[in-house]
Nucleic acid binder design. Structure first.
Lengths: 329, 329
DNA sequence: CTGAAAGCGCTAACAC
DNA sequence: GTGTTAGCGCTTTCAG
């Protein structure tokens, strides 16, 4: 910038005015400055600009997710990005892989860069590490995964209700022996879905001997499904509580050739779920909306200086496509 | 930081030393400083730190992709993030939606934040807007989508070879009437795939009356496939050149009930492609590797100050699963 | 081992 | 309209 000022024969402030499109610069001077800018290939440094600005803002949001390679989180990121773009902000994204230490490290890096807000799909058992930040005034919104502690805003799908609906759907189709396959319970969403399943089963007076959790990828889910179905005392229907669990279970059913015999309803939609035979009944979420709402909530809090809002819950329902309507043999 | 220095009764520099773990601070002073830091909840401001540092680095990379909600790009982002994390960097990500103006705006924002390097899946017809940056020394790596201009490094899948292999695979299975369905040709990868298809067809002495491009989403691909197959003069096999095109085409085939009659090979792998009947033969890419290599290339250039490297091309091959091995009726 | 002064690139506040 | 001075939060340089 100094070089530009020198080249144009004006002061720093005049260059600053031109760059920021402030009123009150002669056309003549402005032209000179612009010429110098083009000539030198000058690019203003936003870090320095935002550092000095009165309204302290880095024009960026931080998003901590479990894994961006999971299409579900990628879609949340997309929604968040759209909300951020509308406000002229950029998004820093990082994957925790479900590791609390990594989540914490990411949050710390984001805070060190002074993001205007934090969106977190948390898997941390203890959010104490966040309270300092919350007091510092940085808005925090949890998406989908809720912490144990009572901090920050929350935007999430109705995991419990959705899992209950899936379970009810199978019960309504005469199933009594229903298994639950899900992710690790340190993920709040996974725990909630399990809860919804158990509640619905109990309400119907059914036993729940088949509750499998800690299935971390499609391969584990596939193996677990195969084992589950090879035991003499086996279920007639499955609730698969995660997109990759659904994928693994579907693979297993097809490998065993029992996809027309064992019913299943999955949480999350999966690509091509409608084309498979039988097509997979699911409880789809709207992750893009989740991300967009989280971003909007951040900006609301930035504007209104509201400390905390009630949770925002997105309702879900079963989409019947075939696999969930199979009756027990 | 000033507050911390005051509270601990030391100078700014001593606090700085403690924060940066520099050697040469008495244990006693260090303890005092740490106490003050904890007490005040002080968090160093990386923006200011990186601003003043001798080695100019923002410890961040910028990634401009077409759409992070597309699992292919999300996976690239994941690979890039892993490479960045290994070097202590964070990733700023933005989606262009295939709009050159948006791509350019994103690149400018990233540059204004002084990212250490830029990874771009470009759809811009004219990369002149980048040359200024390249001269400025910012490493730029293009992933998957190569610009027309001769700037920056390139890491990409062998689109042309992969499309040719898919085509050859169908020809080897006695098909003579093969259609090509792809994305807009402003995407270099789409254009390359079309080229590979045309070359292989021409080499085999076959006509190519069915070349459909500009299919932007699964719905368009589905509609195009239905129309293609309802004409009296129709192909017996399809090359679908994009993940979402494959999805649309599969939907169409199943809707028409002709999935066992029309052969197809898709570019990109698709979730559950192995479970559908018939399972879909594909030319899978490794997008995580693409992203990782792009990130590593950035850091190499940062370290070695190399201006430019030869393109890095990832080979691909057909994975036969069923749909590509159907013979013409 | 510690601190004072200068300055990164820019904007704010107030001159002129 | 334009320039000058101060200072954002930190690191660097160099003196003690």
């Amino acid at each position: 910038m100094r070089d530009v000022a020198e080249a144009a024969g004006v002061s720093l402030k005049t260059v600053s005015r031109v760059v920021n499109r402030e009123r009150g610069v002669t056309e003549e001077l402005e032209a000179k400055v612009r010429a110098a800018i083009a000539d030198l290939g000058y690019q203003p440094d936003d870090r320095a600009r935002f550092l000095r600005r009165t309204a302290p803002s880095s024009k960026s949001l931080g998003f901590v997710q479990v894994d961006v390679a999971n299409p579900f989180f990628a879609a949340i990121l997309r929604g968040l990005e759209d909300a951020a773009r509308a406000r002229g902000s950029l998004v820093l994204a990082g994957s925790s892989d479900g590791d609390p230490d990594r989540e914490e490290a990411l949050v710390r890096s984001f805070i060190a860069r002074r993001v205007d807000g934090l969106v977190i799909s948390s898997c941390h058992p203890d959010l104490a590490y966040l309270t300092a930040e919350l007091q510092h005034g940085t808005p925090v919104v949890f998406v989908d995964l809720q912490p144990a502690a009572d901090v920050g805003d929350l935007i999430h799908t109705d995991h419990r209700g959705g899992a209950a609906a899936a379970t009810r759907h199978l019960i309504d189709h005469d199933h009594r022996r229903i298994a639950f396959l899900g992710d690790a319970l340190r993920f709040w969403s996974a725990a909630q879905r399990r809860l919804g399943f158990l509640e619905e089963m109990t309400a119907a007076g059914l036993e729940t001997p088949w509750v499998l959790t800690d299935l971390g990828d499609p391969d584990q889910a596939e193996a677990a499904t195969v084992e589950l179905l090879s035991s003499p005392d086996r279920p007639t229907a499955l609730v698969t509580a995660q997109n990759f669990v659904t994928i693994g279970a579907v693979r297993a059913l097809h490998r065993l050739g029992r996809q027309h015999e064992i019913a299943m309803v999955g949480f999350d939609d999966v690509e091509l779920a409608d084309v498979i035979q039988p097509a997979i009944s699911v409880v789809p979420q709207d992750p893009i909306a989740l991300g967009r709402l989280a971003g909007e909530r951040i900006f609301e809090r930035l504007a209104d200086d509201v400390t905390r809002n009630p949770p925002r819950l997105l309702p879900v329902a079963v989409v019947a496509r075939g696999s969930g309507e199979i009756r027990p043999g």
